[in-house]
């Protein structure tokens, strides 16, 4: 049975935003550190490392989860999506991102990547998400700048716009 020794680094490969990535990690390395320091994808932020602030939220196999509560070796072969993978093109924002910009849904922007990942998945999987459902999903994220008012507006605006797109 494969046993990864604590004292060595081991190859970790997965798909990040549609492209294969790999690097070496000790078994104890957190996915958040692997993304930031091994892969160099610094868009995912770290705010608490005990699963409560939500800044490090990334999509793991289609579900938003905490990168700080996940080991890099656990996601070998997985599909990971981060804030860097949300925009349709390097020079274009997604509808959700655009709504955040229009509604001032961010200030310092540190919690924003995790929030975008959660909302992106929510609006994709549940396009008819109600205001309370959006709020409950947001409750897994701490934002100290906005008081959440503008984030809720941005999320609701994105939902409306995405809904129209689907109708059309």
């Amino acid at each position: 049975m494969p046993r990864l020794s604590a004292d060595c680094r081991h190859m970790v490969s997965f798909t990040l935003n549609g492209a294969p990535v790999s690097g070496e990690a000790e078994p104890r390395m957190l996915l958040s550190d692997f993304l930031r320091y091994v892969v160099g994808a610094t868009g995912t932020h770290v705010g608490c490392e005990h699963g409560l602030c939500g800044a490090c939220t990334v999509e793991i196999d289609g579900q938003p989860g905490r990168a700080c509560l996940t080991l890099a070796v656990q996601v070998r072969g997985a599909q990971i999506r981060t804030v860097e993978g949300l925009a349709p093109a390097p020079d274009r924002l997604s509808v959700l991102q655009e709504c955040f910009r229009e509604h001032h849904g961010l200030q310092c922007g540190f919690c924003t990547p995790g929030i975008l990942v959660t909302l992106d998945a929510l609006l994709r999987d549940n396009p008819a998400a109600s205001e309370p459902e959006i709020r409950e999903a947001l409750a897994g994220h701490l934002c100290r700048c906005t008081g959440y008012v503008s984030i809720m507006r941005a999320a609701l605006a994105a939902q409306q716009r995405l809904g129209k797109k689907t109708d059309a």
């Binding site: 610094t42 925009a87 910009r101 922007g109 924003t112």
Partner: peptide
Amino acid sequence: RSLPRVEDAALLIGRGRYIDD
């Protein structure tokens, strides 16, 4: 006027430049 912020585009795509980045 409440113009969109010039800061936001980079922050929204994960290209902010915080100290640990």
